[in-house]
């Protein structure tokens, strides 16, 4: 694929990145840097730790995650995030919305009705 085609996804990713982070946390308890790495590996190269930090902050404030501080080998303790019940419900809602939008946009592209 042409590289230029997938650059600058910031605008398009807005609103879905939070869902992606919920999904990653939903699989196993994890921390900010690991989440960023996962998103980068997935191909979202522009996502920096700061972006993930602001998302985690919102998830925490909205009561969707359980946060545990654990000591790390280097530097200050790390915050680990796991989904709680509200978080799992939010994640299900995200996938439902995603499927809805995706199906319709695909239809549009295929020219169907």
């Amino acid at each position: 694929m042409e590289k230029g085609a997938v650059e600058d996804l910031t605008e398009l990713l807005k609103g879905t990145l939070e869902g992606c982070v919920l999904e990653i946390i939903g699989r196993e308890e994890t921390y900010g840097y690991a989440i960023t790495r996962r998103l980068n590996e997935l191909g979202f190269a522009d996502v920096v730790e700061g972006t993930v930090y602001t998302i985690l902050l919102r998830l925490e404030r909205n009561g969707l995650v359980q946060v545990t501080k654990r000591p790390s080998e280097q530097g200050p303790p790390r915050k680990f995030y796991a989904l709680n019940d509200a978080g799992r419900a939010e994640l299900a809602t995200f996938w439902a919305k995603w499927t809805y939008v995706k199906t319709r946009i695909d239809k549009l592209k295929e020219g169907g009705r």
């Binding site: 900010g32 840097y33 730790e49 700061g50 930090y53 280097q74 530097g75 200050p76």
Partner: peptide, 8 residues
């Protein structure tokens, strides 16, 4: 958050 980044 900055402390963590700096430590890394």
């Amino acid at each position: 958050f900055f402390e963590e980044g700096a430590a890394a």
